[in-house]
Nucleic acid binder design. Structure first.
Length: 595
RNA sequence: CACCCAUUCGUCUAAUGGUUCAGGACCCUACCCUUUCACGGUAGAAAUACGGGUUCGACUCCCGUAUGGGUGACCA
């Protein structure tokens, strides 16, 4: 082996690329950059039936958004192209033939229908059909019939496939995985996988090995779902005489679906109730009337039970929650993350919005949701990997430096929306204003709100610390750019308004007017200035902050909560601030009269 | 059903046989800061799946059980 590090990300263009795939791409990228290696995109489109137009473009756009740049790809080209398997079609047949020459393969004429029927028949008897050493001589192939017969079939144009012949007594297939260590399969468990399909296209297995070999791939970094087919791949390297050039393997843990934030199903609740009464109440009869309400999210239930268990622990010294119940609750929450989950759980699981052909092939993306690409990179990197210390926030460069297979975890990781939200918030808070503006500007433009750079910057600074997602900059700043509808406000916030404003108005009216007059006399209407003047005035006059400031807040923002008053006023400008105060004060007067 | 992989707070994870009544982060609770909402700070609740073994000593190694996941296509 030459020693040069070359890795590939090899997706199939069969739909939107989901975050598991994005993370695979990221880990490939990190490893390549760290080792001074080459990061390659190869499109695995050998299955025409599943090809989805637009999927390849989506993959490229998604990775571009995240800033993961390829060194070699279909678009960019490279020394080892083409990088789309459909364009390499011509070269695979040769290696299928070579398999047969080397005594590692054979022609098979069984049709798909025949095989499906066979499988169905055996399945009905509770058995599983395997095309392998134990059955291959009973099948329709070049091993089970005389040479003249199968040669004639081929000459007659009868469709055939080429299968890998797993040697009868090969023994154990052993290989090393960079994250999981030594993995062992017994070759008797393997079946004679199809290598070349009847349409002349290779299957994943053949194409993958042939391409990895020719592209001089040094490390195959992919999802754990490939682990069971890796022994086939190892055998293929041997069959083609490439064993010495076999890449190293690294199988990444799966990303599991998040815990449901919605209510769990009735059925789950019932199952749970059964388990609970049987195993828990029976063990602790005294808990029968103290059982938690069986409703809400799984998490709520779990918390209730744990509280109860702790409560009991104090009473009678029984220490632990029944292991069966715990295991059951855990199992109810797990499962592989699927496309549907994103919509069901009200969070994105794709990098970008995806609009497929059918109504249910539409998904929300992180980008459109308002995530920063750097935050997505960070949170994805930490889903299955950690630096070993207590650092949580990493730049891409830091990730490149610190990444290692040894610190990739072996078990699947549940995607967690709350933590994703936190990452994004941290990235927004820590962003340079200039960077932030690049992301915010298009949002306002989309909503056809034309703000000056100065106003944009003001909004960014004002809301930076209280926003989780980018679109909130627009939503939460709306009140700054449209005059307040006081009647609507009364409708919506009536109760709070009465409590914090109207009931206090008689006592605070004068103070408010004083502050207004003071504000009107400020020449340089900047946040700092307003703040000091406001505080000075409040102190000098002996006003009560708790009384006055909420009123001013409602007057200028129409809300009970939000950013600092001085910041809002400065952004509004002196005129608008005074107008809003005037309007609101009049409104209060009127309100008081009518009561 | 078979094979493979996995199993530390609710979640992501640290501790690679001995500075551990198991550390950090998210979530949750309380308090502080604050006109408010956030941010920030302090504190708290919260875990080694179970059972055996090996060892002076086990979260860590071995075996079994349970649970979860993956795979079992002329899909990738």
């Amino acid at each position: 082996m030459s020693g040069a590090i070359r890795v590939r990300f090899a997706p199939s263009p069969t739909g939107a690329l989901h975050i598991g795939g994005v993370r695979t791409a990221l880990y490939n990228y990190l490893f390549a950059r760290q080792q001074g290696g080459t990061f390659i995109l190869r499109i695995e489109d050998t299955d025409q039936k599943r090809y989805v137009p637009g999927a390849e473009a989506y993959i490229i756009e998604a990775l571009e958004w995240l800033g993961l740049e390829f060194d070699e790809s279909p678009a960019k080209g490279g020394e080892y192209g083409p990088y789309r398997q459909s364009e390499r079609k011509a070269m695979y047949g040769e290696f299928a033939e070579k398999l047969i020459e080397n005594g590692w393969g054979y022609y098979a004429f069984d049709t798909e229908d025949e095989l499906t029927q066979k499988r169905a028949k055996l399945e009905a008897q509770g058995q599983v059909f395997k095309y392998d050493a134990s059955t291959r001589l009973d099948m329709n192939n070049s091993l089970s019939m005389p040479e003249a017969a199968w040669k004639q079939k081929i000459a007659d144009g009868v469709p055939y496939v080429v299968r890998l012949m797993v040697p009868l007594d090969y023994g154990l297939v052993i290989f090393d995985d960079e994250v999981r260590g030594q993995i062992t399969f017994n070759s008797t468990e393997l079946d004679d996988k199809v290598m070349l399909k009847a349409d002349g296209m290779p299957t994943y297995h053949l194409a993958n090995i042939v391409d990895d070999y020719h592209m001089k791939i040094s490390h195959v970094i992919r999802g754990e779902e490939w682990l069971p087919s890796t022994p086939i791949h190892v055998l293929l390297y041997e069959a083609l005489g490439w064993k010495a050039d076999m890449p190293k393997f690294a199988h990444l843990p799966l990303i599991l679906k998040p815990e449901p934030t919605t209510y769990i199903s009735k059925r789950t609740v019932n199952t749970f109730t059964d388990k609970f009464t049987k195993e828990f109440v029976k063990k602790y009869p005294e808990t029968e009337n103290k059982a938690p309400k069986i409703e809400g999210t799984i998490r709520t239930i779990l918390q209730d039970i744990k509280n109860l268990a702790n409560h009991l622990k104090q009473e009678d010294g029984e220490p632990k929650l029944n292991a069966n119940i715990k295991a059951f609750l855990k199992s109810a929450m797990k499962g592989k993350l699927s496309k549907r989950d994103g919509d069901r759980l009200g969070m994105p699981v794709f990098p970008l919005d995806w609009n497929g052909a059918t109504a249910d092939d539409n998904f929300k993306g992180f980008r459109e949701w308002g995530f920063l690409p750097s935050a997505v990179l960070n949170l994805l990197a930490l889903l299955g990997w950690n630096s070993g210390d207590e650092q949580e926030l990493f730049t891409l460069d830091e990730l490149v430096q610190k990444f290692s297979f040894a610190r990739v975890s072996k078990s699947g990781a549940q995607f967690n929306y709350e933590k994703a939200k936190w990452y994004n918030q941290q990235y927004i808070i820590n962003s340079e204003n200039a960077t932030l503006l690049e992301f915010i500007r298009p949002i306002f433009k989309d909503k056809e709100q034309d703000l000056s750079e100065e106003a944009l910057l003001g909004v960014a600074q004002l809301l930076k610390q209280r926003v989780n997602f980018l679109p909130e900059f627009h939503e939460q700043s709306a009140f700054l750019f449209q005059s307040l509808d006081l009647e609507a406000l009364k409708e919506k916030e009536g109760k709070n308004l009465r409590k914090k404003v109207f009931n206090k108005w008689a006592d605070s009216k004068e103070s408010c007017q004083t502050l207004k007059t003071m504000l009107s006399s400020i020449d340089s209407f900047e946040a700092d200035n307003i703040k000091t003047e406001l505080e000075k005035s409040i102190e000098q006059n002996g006003f009560e902050k708790r009384l006055i400031l909420p009123i001013l807040r409602y007057a200028i923002s129409g809300k009970g909560g939000g950013p600092e008053l001085d910041g809002i006023m400065a952004l509004l400008g002196k005129n608008e601030t005074l107008t809003r105060l005037n309007n609101f004060f009049e409104f209060c007067d009127k309100e008081l009269e009518t009561v």
